[in-house]
Structures are given as structure tokens and as C-alpha cells.
């Protein structure tokens, strides 16, 4: 087990396209950190650089304080779970799992013992003699995980390991990964584009966009207080009000002034979750008037699209009777729920 530090990491395939820009990240011993971002944001590139499968063009990858940048892949002693599982098709489950131990010249009896142990932990003992082609997707995923865990890697890397599984299996596998990672106290890095998956499994999350980390924090903080417009949009915020000027927690939006939860001097937008917007009868501070444009029944609430002077806002309301279209309403955006975002 180890600590990982990424320092000023840079990557470009040619002079014009920079894939990673000055990336910095620290992962503590035994921590599971996710990189979350849309496809093409550079998250898999980052993981492959850490693994040693790609050479970076700048910066360092440090494990327990020593730079491993020059160390070839096969000497880094990491474990990795691939998106395609990447099992050795010509080897049985047992031999697949034993592969890494054989490279480390572990004694035969010891290999037998360790492989059997991990196969039991991952619930694969009955399948030891099978070949990968004879396994279901979920079983292959388990083998891939067992193969990575058995070598007791200094760092466990997971590259979208759940994306090829169906929805139900995805949930149970992610719980399994989390359980094993905590039981074996592995330092792990998990790459995904699925926000729910990533929040469920991670100690901390790095949200990545266009080669940069936009926010690195616990899932709770990221959800409660996204820092940038991109992060807010990516984790599901839908209402955005463009800010023209910001001063000490006061924000100008098309002539109206709003007070938000925190003072962000370089804010460019305000956001609020639809269920935090309140319907009020009188105009007042942090309030804007509008007309209901359309409504949708969501089961536990109604979702209204309200046309205001500041643009369309989505509002969720529980327990009211449905408001007819064209109804005039006053929307109150509570200060503590209104978040100021950077570009």
C-alpha cells in the first residue's frame, strides 16, 4: 500500500493538442479516489500514465515520495482492472490470477495458497479451471479484480471496470470492489464517467474536464457545493443564471441582485437545484417572477418549467395541486441554496 502523488503532469500527442495540463493530485494511503469526467476529458490517459502504459510529456508520478516516471510498467508493481477485463484467453481462471505471482517468482506452493485464498474471497473457487470464454461478464470482471488484488499491488488502478456490465450487476460489483478495497486497505484509483457509481464508491472524487481537474473533494462536498459551472452541470444541476458582476456575496444577474451562499469573486453563474426553489406569493429579496410554461408529473413532485426575466428555471414542487400553464408565480431562491460558480 502506498501514497500516490501526481505533480504537474502534462501530456500531449502533438504540439497542438494538449491532453493533460498541469495536473496535480494526491491520494492518501488506503484511499479510493475516482476521476470523474466525460469521455475524452483525459481521465483514462491519466490512469495509463500512472500505470506506465503511456509516457507523459511532463511532470512526475510519485509513489511514496519516489518518482516512478522512468520505471517501466512491469516494474511498478501495480494492479489494474481494464475496461475489457483483458483476461488471458489461453489461460484458466487459476492461471490468470497466478500470472502476476509467477512474474514475481513466488514459490509454487505459495502461489497455490494465495490464489486459492483470493478466489475464495471473490467467490470464484468453483470456476478455477474454467477459461475466460466460459465465463459471464460479471465473472470475468471478478477474475480481473482477483488477478489485480492477488499481487498485493502498491496501487490498484480501475479503468471504467463496470461499463460493460448490465445495470443490476454494476451496482453489486461496485459494492464488491468497495468491500474488497476496504478489507485489503488498498490505495486505489477509479476512472469512470458515471456520477452515481463514482459517488457510491469513492472517498474523494476528482472531476476532470479538458485535461484539467475542476474540483477535487469528497462526494458530499462536490454534490452540495460544486465549484465550477462544468462540475455543476456534470453532476446534474440544471438552472444556471449568468452573473454580470460579483461583489462580496452580492451577484448581479441582468440587473437583479442576488445573495448566494458564499462569496466567490470571479463567479460567472449562479445555480440552484430545482427542489430548493420555493413558490412564494410576494416579490422580495432573491425572488424573481415568472409564468409556468409547462409541467411534468415526476411521481413524488411536479416539475415546472418557469419562464422568468432571467431565463427558464426548472422548479420541483411536492404536494401542491398542479399549477396550470400560464399561471404567474414568484420564485424564491434561498440564499443558502444558491451557489456561485466559477467558469
Amino acid at each position: 500500500m502506498a501514497e500516490l502523488e501526481i505533480r504537474d503532469l502534462e501530456m500531449s500527442y502533438d504540439k497542438h493538442h494538449q491532453i493533460l495540463k498541469d495536473l496535480n493530485l494526491q491520494i492518501k494511503d488506503g484511499e479510493l479516489v475516482s476521476i470523474l469526467g466525460p469521455s475524452g476529458c483525459g481521465k483514462t490517459t491519466t490512469l495509463r500514465i500512472i500505470a506506465g502504459l503511456l509516457p507523459q510529456t511532463g511532470g512526475q508520478v510519485l509513489v511514496d515520495g519516489t518518482d516512478v516516471s522512468k520505471l517501466p510498467v512491469h516494474k511498478r508493481q501495480f494492479g489494474m482492472v481494464f475496461q475489457s477485463y483483458a483476461l488471458f484467453p489461453h489461460l484458466t481462471v487459476f492461471d490468470n490470477v497466478a500470472f502476476g505471482l509467477k512474474q514475481r517468482k513466488v514459490a509454487k506452493a505459495e502461489i497455490q495458497k494465495q490464489v486459492s485464498e483470493i478466489l475464495t474471497i471473490t467467490g470464484l473457487d468453483a470456476l478455477a479451471k474454467r477459461f475466460p470464454a466460459e465465463l459471464s461478464g460479471g465473472q470475468q470482471q471478478r477474475v480481473s479484480l482477483a488477478r489485480a488484488l492477488v499481487v498485493n499491488p502498491r496501487l490498484l488502478l480501475l479503468d471504467e471496470p463496470l461499463s460493460n456490465l448490465d445495470a443490476k450487476l454494476r451496482v453489486s460489483m461496485r459494492e464488491e470492489i468497495r468491500r474488497l478495497q476496504q478489507r485489503l486497505q488498498m490505495t486505489a484509483m477509479f476512472v469512470t464517467h458515471d456520477q452515481e457509481e463514482c459517488f457510491a464508491i469513492s472517498d474523494r472524487v476528482a472531476v476532470m474536464n479538458q485535461g484539467k481537474i475542476e474540483q477535487f473533494d469528497t462526494p458530499q462536498n462536490i454534490y452540495r457545493a460544486p465549484k465550477t459551472v462544468f462540475v455543476a452541470r456534470f453532476i446534474g444541476y440544471e438552472n444556471f443564471l449568468p452573473v454580470t458582476s460579483a461583489q462580496q456575496g452580492q451577484y448581479q444577474v441582468q440587473g437583479d441582485t442576488f445573495q448566494a451562499a458564499a462569496a466567490v469573486p470571479d463567479a460567472t453563474a449562479l445555480t440552484i437545484r430545482p427542489d430548493r426553489i420555493q413558490l412564494v406569493t410576494e416579490p422580495g429579496a432573491n425572488t424573481v417572477g415568472g409564468q409556468v410554461k409547462s409541467s411534468t408529473y415526476l411521481g413524488n413532485a411536479y416539475r415546472y418549467v418557469v419562464q422568468t426575466a432571467l431565463g427558464e428555471l426548472k422548479v420541483d414542487q411536492v404536494g401542491f395541486d398542479r399549477l396550470a400553464d400560464q399561471t404567474s408565480v414568484q420564485l424564491h431562491l434561498p440564499q443558502e441554496a444558491l451557489l456561485a460558480l466559477q467558469a
Binding site: 488471458f88 480481473s144 489485480a148 499481487v151
Partner: peptide, 12 residues
């Protein structure tokens, strides 16, 4: 990826 997996597991 199968070869990459081998390399990550320590194969020269």
C-alpha cells in the same frame, strides 16, 4: 489490453 495487463502484472 491483455498485453498491458501482463505488463502491469510484472511481465517483461
Amino acid at each position: 489490453e491483455v498485453e498491458e495487463a501482463a505488463a502491469v502484472l510484472g511481465a517483461k
